[in-house]
Write a protein that binds this DNA or RNA. Sequence first.
DNA 1: CGTTCCCTTGAAATATTTCAATTATAGTGG
DNA 2: CCACTATAATTGAAATATTTCAAGGGAACG
Lengths: 279, 279
Amino acid sequence: MSISFADNRSAPTSSHSSAEAGRQRAGHLWSSLADVCNLLQIAPGSAAADRDIVFQHVQFKAGQRIFTIGQPFDMLYIVNSGFLKTVLLDDAGNEQVLGFPMKGDLLGTDGIHQKKYASEAVALSSCDIVMVPFKMLTSLSRRYPEMEMALYSAISRELVREQIMLNMLGSLSAEARVARFLMSLSERFSAMGYSGKEFNLRMTRQDIGSYLGLTLETVSRTMSAFDRLGYIGVDGRAVILKEAQTLRTLRRLPPSKAKAKKVIVEPSDIEMADKELAA
Amino acid sequence: MSISFADNRSAPTSSHSSAEAGRQRAGHLWSSLADVCNLLQIAPGSAAADRDIVFQHVQFKAGQRIFTIGQPFDMLYIVNSGFLKTVLLDDAGNEQVLGFPMKGDLLGTDGIHQKKYASEAVALSSCDIVMVPFKMLTSLSRRYPEMEMALYSAISRELVREQIMLNMLGSLSAEARVARFLMSLSERFSAMGYSGKEFNLRMTRQDIGSYLGLTLETVSRTMSAFDRLGYIGVDGRAVILKEAQTLRTLRRLPPSKAKAKKVIVEPSDIEMADKELAA
DNA sequence: CGTTCCCTTGAAATATTTCAATTATAGTGG
DNA sequence: CCACTATAATTGAAATATTTCAAGGGAACG
């Protein structure tokens, strides 16, 4: 039996639907510059007025690749709807998951450096993607300073996101990684207008494990443990968050056999007083 | 030990004391735009002719911070000489090392997004740093298209570097991480004209461990093991690489009891990720 | 309706950390 | 310049987190 609730694949409750941002034309969707700014959460500034420039959309089905490693770079992609993963491939062809882009995320920036994409993006569901020629973006940058900053800002944000992942992989336990992963998804769903409390995972345990530097078994066991402790409800890919605050600050699990149901948390929100803990 | 370049070492302060983000007094060195392009390994194009623009240098001593987390962003920094580490700080004030920048590396790009630096850079030795106002760079971008691409490219490269680190942390054993770390340093030293075979580590075992997601003891033990196996020579911070090819492709150590000196290596390809492992 | 992929769970193997003790090394100030 | 103190590095032994191996059940899909 499965937990069932509204699928976050359906339209968000938000009043602001950018699905209508796209213009139907010749069977394809197109977005204006204003639409794109909106999607990226940029103040469009004077660029919004530019009605001449439109960007084409492309649809992908689950499993399809938006771009692949080594492919010549000339295009950036913005997710309009759907869920994806970005991956690196090692010599044996094994995937290393780098991230799970969704609505509003910018893809392909790692291709700028070598003029070839350094990673590949795979659709995990049906996806609607806006294609933005990089040349176009740089020429727009010259015309509209807001666009220039937006582009730098978007790339810089990606950089910061990866730094945070490095920190996570370098210093947190398996449980803490899984907990933060769930909270991160929750927050992103919320920001998109979906429920941050109940959602479906779009990726396999394998994908999550790769992303978090863990085996799929460890991910599965950890989620089961969270379920047993009442922090979440899990049934396959359906997740219900029950103790968000606990998950947010969790460092490791409480001793299973022993006494307390108490959890070790960070001294974060309170203050940063004692440092005798610090090595 | 025979080491190919100058001394170093004054104890890198273990975190805190970020109070005075040590911007020493202004140095007396200045660089032209052509100098900067040269440092960054950019084809200067027509920009080289611009003799009006000069960039100021600043000197830092070991332990001083070039910029700190949360500090308002307005400047990028290019390393002209010296060695640094970039770090993230968690709630308890513990450092997470993100990279070890050296000559030619661009610092501070993670500040673009939030207009505040997201990490901090700490000098591990005496350093000479070129200051480049971000505004200046973007205005130059408008004038010289080469500069624009150079900037995007530099940030994109950083992104790729971090992706490779994520892959490493997510999938390699402790031994493989240390081996690749050493090879990466070696290649960077070589590229700078120093010996890639004999060099001094500028950072502590703690720093290396943090960077690689390992404890300092594991780093120490692993290097000792490499030494015992004849792959390297280690004496404190002095390192001599003896079996570069072995280190480059090492996956895990050969069984200690057993006879074999043979090492398990990757099935195919040997380069790709090794190229730019570290900052 | 079968085939394939995905998820869960246990038990054993093992890699890495933790704790602890000892020896180096560098910086400080008499 | 040397002694002194603090920080850094090494190493062993024990503790433990995570992976590996293995098997069974479930969901998805053509």
